[in-house]
Design a protein around this nucleic acid. Structure first.
Lengths: 385, 385
DNA sequence: CTGCGTCGCAGATACGTTTCTCCATGACTG
DNA sequence: CAGTCATGGAGAAACGTATCTGCGACGCAG
């Protein structure tokens, strides 16, 4: 009795219900062994082209689709990458990072797909059973909080983790972040050159890297140039709180004559607040905010924005992760030219490799006094209308 | 020789490298069989609580995590749902649907997670090998084009498919869509009541359901009330083309005194175009556009928008899909009270079940000739789905 | 005619679960 | 005391693939 007949028999005996064709069925139909089918379809082994194409044809005819689960089990690779986003509240995405996140996720999806991987969106707050039930080859973590237990567990269980945002106190394989310090300093300098005398900051109360580094850079700058810090912090995940904070900032006795807002909605909120106080932008108030939205190109006046270039970040993060996945799995091997040799995973070699990416300041009318020429209008005392 | 020793021996013989603890290791450590471990951890079988908790404790101590791949292979369920978005160009998301898609995806992710599933983002244009490599329990398809081959193949291979957007000519398990006809008629009526004499439309050139139904409803209305249609169509996926089309529309000799724009950026584009032509909004031109963005609450003037309520759609779509997945798999069974009995999957029983969901018109200053004081702009309830 | 290398493929095993089947053991009933 | 039943658990068969090992046949040199 041939093996094919045997296996086919077992199949038929077990159940004669509708079943998707398996590799065994293809083997039987083509009159070859399972090995041959596998080799033919995956381009491995030593087979004459004739056999290869015949097997392929039979597989096609039978509508054979290899079982992803079986392949994953066998190879240990699922082709799945987790995209973890830290959550505030029960919604999976942070509201304030929304445009940033959307763009970044889009780029990450593209990049992953281009290398044969797919992305699974997994809020960090997900039920643990969901996390455990998915075979992930690696994970991208967006802005992990300090001591993120999730990241720690993932890393310990051997899953490569690359974070968007310099990680606080958890081990990651690699990380990517903007140069927030340089970005903030650039903006402050830009505003100063435009004539700002007292620059205020609209910042957040949370402790993520972005908020922290940006605020620190602002405070350091204030200290250096001798300006008293003027800032308001609010819970960035609360969409209503931003408008209130913007209002508070402009209502202060030491009202700033220029403001940088760290979050996307700050631009419109500040603009609305300025209107309420009868402040003209940019004459009485210079405005910059961090945003990926191009609505700020069409506001009245258009608002200068800082772009974190999320597409670039998303692409980089995914590529680093996949490099790590494929590099690590080549494992203790001596594959030359690997971008990410295994040593990156070993502990004790110091901090994980990080990449700083530049930001881009898109200068519009809101941060330029007069016509965007070279002349700088004389500074104006705050409060004057 | 006991089974445990045997299996342990095999394990140790095979390789003594670092390996994640498997169910066998737990069984050996707890001094029970594999069956018992599986039953204890999954809450099945007949076991005294003492054994159960002991096994759980051992598993915890060993850091045991069941292999998702093995479980998927065995049970046939991966807990993964595909989220497919039709693409124009190479970017995975359609630009014009962006805010809609983002909100919808967010809600879908939440809903799926709440029921123990995770979402995989899969552009329809993905490399076929990526599609084939993922074990999906079902798929959500956003606005499938007519005769979508992908959907057809998925459906044929037995994967439940639920579409957002009434499907053209491809078989799906179920679908959800807005009542676009009612929405457009409502807007036209609203504009008429505000005093519009000639209502124009800014529409798209693509053939997706949304564009088609909306345009048809507009044309039908024109026919009924005896107005000559005044519209401009442009490729909605091209962000630059919208502004040009808006300009064209207002430059026509038969310039409309009210415009409805089908796509998100139309509001700002129309506003800018109106400014260029010296038209005041709403005095000379009434404006409504379809958008999920709340920037239109703060434009000058605020613009009336039609919300498609993407959160509600996303939630509904996912729930329908999971109902189908779990209902189908209970299979030929006689499980009572199933929301989606298997009969929905059988062919020949007519069109698949569809659900129409209402839209919401958020009336703002741009579509009201008189003082907008009397009407109350509905505040967004924070917990709204 | 023997030994050897290559070609083309078949067998068997392992991946790590879930689950069906079945066997002890004791308790209880008649 | 024999039969029945519930209890607690063990064994083994899948799930569908990839891959390691090995084997017959064939060509060719010695």
């Amino acid at each position: 009795m041939t093996a094919a007949a045997n296996q086919n028999g077992r199949r038929a005996t077990a159940s004669r219900r509708l079943e998707r064709a398996g590799i065994r069925d293809v083997a039987a139909a083509a009159g070859v062994s399972i090995t041959t089918v596998s080799d033919a379809l995956n381009g491995k082994g030593r087979l004459p082209d004739e056999t290869r194409s015949r097997v392929r044809e039979v597989a096609e005819r039978l509508g054979y689709r290899p079982s992803a689960a079986a392949r994953t089990l066998r190879t240990g690779r699922s082709g799945l990458i987790g995209l973890t986003v830290t959550t505030y509240g029960e919604e999976p995405f942070t509201f304030t990072e929304f445009a940033y996140f959307a763009e970044m996720a889009r780029a990450a999806t593209s990049a992953a797909l281009g290398r044969g991987y797919a992305l699974v969106v997994l809020p960090a707050s997900s039920r643990h059973d969901v996390w455990g039930n998915i075979a992930l080859d690696g994970t991208v973590v967006i802005d992990p909080p300090d001591q993120d237990p999730l990241v720690t567990e993932l890393y310990r269980s051997g899953v490569p983790v690359v974070s968007d945002g310099k990680p606080g106190n958890c081990p990651v394989t690699a990380w990517v972040d903007n140069d927030h310090e340089a970005a903030v300093l650039g903006i402050l300098e830009h505003l100063s050159e435009a004539g700002a005398r007292r620059i205020g900051l609209l910042t957040g109360t949370s402790t993520d890297t972005y908020t922290r580094l940006s605020t620190e850079a602002y405070l350091a700058w204030c200290d250096r140039v001798g300006q008293e810090p003027v800032y308001e912090a609010y819970p960035a995940h609360d969409p209503a709180a931003g408008a209130v904070a913007a209002d508070r900032l402009l209502a202060r006795p030491d009202r700033p004559d220029a403001v940088y807002g760290l979050f996307d909605p700050n631009g419109t909120d500040l603009l609305a607040a300025a209107r309420r106080y009868g402040l003209r932008v940019p004459e009485d108030l210079l405005l910059v905010c961090c945003s990926e939205s191009d609505v700020y190109a069409n506001t009245e006046p258009p608002i200068t924005t800082l772009s974190l270039k999320p597409r670039r970040i998303g692409t980089t993060v995914v590529n680093l992760l996949i490099d790590a996945i494929e590099g690590v799995d080549a494992g203790s091997g001596s594959v030359p030219g690997r971008l990410f040799p295994p040593r990156y995973r070993t502990a004790g070699t110091g901090p994980p490799p990080g990449t700083l990416m530049p930001t881009e300041l898109i200068v519009r009318a809101s941060s330029q006094r007069r016509s965007p020429r070279t002349t700088i209008s004389p500074p104006r005392p705050p409060g004057e209308v």
